[in-house]
Design a protein around this nucleic acid. Structure first.
Lengths: 340, 340
DNA sequence: TTACTAATTGTAAGCGCTTTCATAAAACAT
DNA sequence: ATGTTTTATGAAAGCGCTTACAATTAGTAA
């Protein structure tokens, strides 16, 4: 491997000058610059990332922590992060987190060992107070996705208009004047889920009608949604007239149950999900669209900016949601189950 | 940030000894080891990754290049890579590649700048001969997924049993004795697609029946599959009796056309895809299962092993596929379109 | 006790860059 | 022509580790 010294030798210049052209820090005569560039190409020289990191104390990489969830959601978020960070010449160091793994480990190798200049923590990567304290010490910019963090240290965050989106969904459902409305939430500690529930309650209150609102606790998984809904139906002995699952996966579980019982959708029961994932689009599930890629882009933008200027005040970006009315609430052609 | 020197000062030991306990290279008295560990904890010390990289010339990270495709496929592959690399204490530096981006750039920053100890190149990241030459120079282990590379430098590869899988699909289709069979391929230069086509031809020949085989050229995308099939139907003025699309996305496109024409599936037309993606599972599309996570695991295993021992001969792993018979070929409940 | 081997620990030379400060050359003004 | 800026380059000190190799200490057999 050619080193900077080889380039110096070849050009007869000092390390300082060669370093300057590598970093494009101006202050170099154009002719010299070209001479160096030529030598670099001829030697097939690439600056050692390790050395630059050590000497320059910056890594040009941003650490991303994603939950281990195989659906398309986080790929899209990741893609958004990628778009913006590629543009900013930042590489992505990615770690997956699941409840069995140790977030502290991940955090210390990313920030403690100085592998990254900034961090993006996605939903479902629960920060413990102690970890936050450590992170604060390392003072590396952090952007949170779908999580809030009000105390010090200041962290940027990208949030969803959950309240609004859930409210829209409920309003849409109530248009047909159902007697009963079931919502299936995500995990209790999930911020998105909490906000959606607030939105639901508010919308129901605002509607000033007398729907019966039942809150079922789900887990954001297909099977979980199915199970909790099935259980409810068994207990109550009847189907509700409207169901709002806090994500599409669970809504799909609800549809399973409904289809197996040959209930007409949306004739007897309306169903709405949240996310607008691939299957929802495919089968015509009414849902609330979440701008996944944009979320990633915003998160990357936030940290990229903060890397340049750490003094910026923490920013919180709210991403818009939008109701997508489809067949399961009577829009478009009628729904017919893909599973029989 | 505490440095190794701080730990030395605190313990009164030399950098060599402290370094030894950090690296667990034995040769340190147990009491000393504990003393150092304690000091590290108290100082909240983490070894600088940059310094270790520079001094030790290893990065403990593996570079992964994935195509920009938002479906669940590559997340699963990535997940597999993650599982194995986490176990081997390797971090993942991920780059996305799409036809507009410059692979050379990605490769040089990953291998040329020495950011990674090894590389995993996924499908659809077409290596040009010149790039390969450069990579050879850097002699960093490389594993290819879904690509073959026979010449020097030796590269590991993880391949699919495309031939077998496609053959199985065709055999399954021919059981009902269709008069005509249409296959919709992927891009012409795609290795998987080429192999699947070989498998198809072989299976048709083996069957020794007189199906008419028509090969349509697709692109692995839903819309592309739909378009090419629609065009064919228009031209020929009739529906074939069996369709084998080389991935699920295109098969879904075919189903769209069929459903819009209210053709009975599988009564009039049987359809098979390839991949076994989420939607295929959901709607009951017969398909060929691809062990995506396992593919990632194997790729990571290969490079992890080669990092330890560069002398190992290049290895080529063949991953098994398996036919999953579902409704679109008459298994399970009859198929009914999710879109009307 | 003495000589010798094994187990620990220390010394110091880098790894390949960035960057501050000093110096030299060129450009300009007087 | 001389002093003053401005511009271009160089010298050298680290950045925080790893790792030969040297030195010391402990352990053992004679």
């Amino acid at each position: 491997m050619a080193t900077l010294y080889d380039v110096c030798k070849k050009t007869g210049l000092s390390t300082a000058t060669v370093s300057r052209v590598i970093n494009g820090s101006g202050l170099v005569k154009e002719a010299t610059r070209e001479r160096v560039l030529k030598a670099m190409k001829e030697l097939n020289y690439y600056p050692s990332h390790a050395a630059r990191m050590l000497a320059g104390s910056k890594t040009d990489t941003i650490g991303v922590i994603l939950p281990v969830i195989d659906n398309g959601y986080y790929v899209r978020v990741l893609r958004g992060i990628d778009v913006v960070s590629t543009r900013a010449n930042l590489k992505l160091l990615i770690s997956f987190y699941h409840s069995g793994s140790d977030l502290s480990d991940i955090l210390s190798s990313l920030s403690g060992e100085g592998r990254a200049d900034a961090l993006i923590l996605s939903n479902d990567t629960p920060l413990q107070p102690e970890q936050i304290r450590k992170l604060a010490g390392s003072d590396i910019p952090i952007a949170l996705i779908g999580q809030k963090h009000e105390d010090q240290p200041a962290m940027d965050s990208v949030l969803l208009e959950n309240f609004q989106g859930a409210g829209d969904a409920v309003k849409h459902l109530l248009e047909k004047g159902p007697k009963s409305l079931i919502v299936i939430t995500g995990p209790e500690d999930n911020h998105d889920s909490q906000e959606r529930l607030r939105g639901v309650r508010q919308a129901v209150a605002d509607a000033a009608c007398d729907v019966e609102l039942v809150v079922l606790h789900g887990d954001f998984y297909h099977e979980g949604g199915r199970a909790v809904f099935e259980e409810y139906v068994k207990q109550s002995g009847a189907f509700p007239e409207a169901v709002f699952a806090f994500n599409d996966a669970m809504a799909l579980g609800v549809l399973d149950v409904l289809n197996e019982a040959s209930v007409s959708i949306p004739g007897d029961v309306q169903v709405i999900g949240f996310d607008n994932n691939e299957i929802a689009q495919y089968i015509g599930l009414t849902t609330v669209r979440v701008p996944m890629q944009k979320i990633g882009e915003e998160a990357a933008r936030l940290v990229a900016e903060r890397i340049k200027n750490k003094e910026l005040p923490a920013e919180s970006v709210l991403m818009e949601t939008a109701l997508v009315a489809r067949k399961t609430t009577g829009n478009g052609a009628s729904f017919s189950s893909p599973k029989m």
